[in-house]
Design a binder for these strands. Structure first.
Lengths: 342, 342
DNA sequence: AATTTTCCCGCAAACGATTGCAGTAACTAT
DNA sequence: ATAGTTACTGCAATCGTTTGCGGGAAAATT
């Protein structure tokens, strides 16, 4: 199907001038007589001229576009960060291309390659669940393509990233559960190879240690974030001879499924089992009991990621920076046990 | 920042052959000696050659890319349709660029213009809430740029679209409420200028009429889908001298907020007020009571939208087609009143 | 009046690929 | 040996822009 688009050349011919003049006139460059400038503008308007971005990008060798690669869009956390990334990019005159990996390593590699071939000026990436080696990212570094990681990162990569202190956040949440009187604490985590999951588990352990509470390996289990698997994890906990009285879930998706499982079993939350989760999805408010959750500074994450990237795009040899943002525990009903007087 | 990318030319010079030969060799075209083909492949591998998509697209005048424009990503419905659109596009050898309008008309116009300038091969669009005139879409038609609308469409536009029978769906849901014994039915709708919202209200009215139930204008109110506004709508209903005993909400976002409001007031659902909603968000299962909702064939919508678009891209003068898909009421607790024996 | 400056504008190369056509060498057929 | 194929490869135009440089005409300066 042929789409009839008008080019700079047609305008030039129509006016009997050269393409360079038209180009300059349209972009408001100096050295163009007012009359010709107006004439060009008029004809361009008439023919509804729209510049061919492809050609423009080709000669400029820059697309004013940043590629964003995320595991998926249908999660509150990522879709929200995306909004703030887009916002910040737009303000800097960049547009964004959004790609999903669906947690697959292969797709991640493909999507990144596509973006690079399409000559995006830089990439903002949150790694897929299945990504365990990072050659494709290191290639970007070698090619000096600006990259920023957010949330799902890797310690192996010496690269700019914007993250939160997951250990500290999980520590705080666990501490809160302990202070609300929980003695037998469990943690429902994500995939074993996911750094942020492990960091959160680490924070969980640290808190137990600090408060001299025992750590039972069977109280920590790993899943894939899916509802089915998460509920299974929760049921397994309840089936233990001595079930926990407090649970930290490292993502709201796991948290919501867990709460659902607890309700199905008729477990009283927070009286019998208290719960804290991660991400502070707006749905936390909708549940009964409402769900205590750790808030990530989503707005800032997006903004900082864009800032870091732009600095790389503009500088010649930027050094990798890590920006660590603060989280905040939002206490709601799911963890508000009445503490007994001692 | 200069990114050192290798071009076809460098390979050519290195091997002492012409760029055309290199190009042909890399793409596996015939008429190339095995030795040279291998040599080219080897050097390309060595230098990690990646074709410049911009240049390619420029000469092909096709990007093998489709632009998708949606109101926002942070809603279940859109993010899910996106997944199936991407899936279908990928299978046909197309990649997708995702853009959000944030419900703003201006952004919609901008995003579409950008996509067109970037020479996407076609567009799949779901209109923004604030879009009330369609000159920007008609311009696409005039320029013969393939477009498909889904979900949020307009009757003014003679153009391919994939939608559901909203009137029928709302009719069915209302009928269900009536059959569960509801006598005073309310409907919480979206913005007044949103066609799908009005269609659903129409279906609601039709059902009332069929069953000879009175229609009170104060039982229908319009909002903007936000939690705050939706809860306000719900509270207003309950404050009426004679509150409804059944509510149809035309979106889960409104539905969830409504349920939340009802709970806050201590209203028993479904006993005192029954409720049916739209979209069948997975969260419907998480609520207590779980939320009855109308399921839209999300997978199919994405697939059909891509199909329609591809047909336009490939055909010369395709006639606009409207594909209307079937919905399905998923009955859960929020509408399952016990019907009294009569 | 001659020279310099200013103002406009066009030529042509470049960006990195693709492609129709022509051309050369080797090979086959007569 | 000559003509006709066949198998490769290169030239140059093209896609739609941008941009450095140079040049001509008008205006300003001396």
């Amino acid at each position: 199907m042929k789409t009839n688009t008008t080019t700079i050349k047609e305008i030039a011919i129509l006016l009997g001038i050269s393409t360079s003049t038209v180009s300059r006139a349209l972009r408001g460059l100096p050295d163009i007589k007012h009359e010709t400038r107006n004439a060009v503008a008029r004809v361009a308007e008439e023919l509804d001229y729209q510049p061919n971005q492809l050609a423009k990008n080709l000669v400029k060798n820059s697309t004013k576009t940043i590629g964003v690669v995320v595991p998926g869009l249908n999660f509150y956390f990522f879709s929200s960060v995306l909004i703030s990334i887009e916002e910040a990019a737009l303000q800097a005159g960049y547009s964004v291309i959004i790609c999903q990996t669906h947690e697959s390593y292969l797709r991640e590699v493909n999507q990144i390659e596509n973006l690079v071939n399409s000559r995006v000026d830089g990439l903002i990436i949150s790694l897929a669940r299945d990504t365990t080696h990072y050659e494709h990212i290191e290639k970007l570094i070698r090619k000096k393509i600006p990259v920023v990681l957010f949330d799902r990162h890797s310690e192996e990569l010496n690269i700019s990233k914007v993250i939160v202190d997951n250990i500290k956040a999980a520590f705080g949440a666990t501490e809160h559960l302990i202070q609300r009187g929980c003695k037998r604490l469990a943690c429902l985590a994500g995939p074993l190879n996911l750094l942020i999951s492990n960091e959160r588990v680490q924070g969980f352990k640290d808190a137990l240690e600090k408060y001299n509470l025992p750590f039972y390996p069977e109280y920590v289990s790993h899943g894939d974030f899916s509802k089915e698997h998460s509920m299974l994890q929760a049921f397994n906990l309840m089936n233990l001879p001595n079930p926990p009285d407090g649970i930290l879930t490292i993502s709201d998706r796991i948290g919501f499924a867990t709460l659902h499982a607890l309700k199905q079993r008729g477990v009283k939350v927070p009286e019998e089992i208290a719960m804290v989760s991660f991400n502070n999805d707006p749905f936390c408010n909708y549940f009964t009991p409402s769900v205590s959750s750790i808030n990530q500074p989503i707005q800032e994450m997006g903004k900082e990621a864009v800032n870091l990237l732009l600095r790389q795009i503009e500088n010649e040899n930027p050094i990798p920076e890590t920006i660590m943002l603060k989280t905040q525990l939002v206490v709601r009903e799911s963890s508000m046990r009445k503490v007994e007087e001692n």
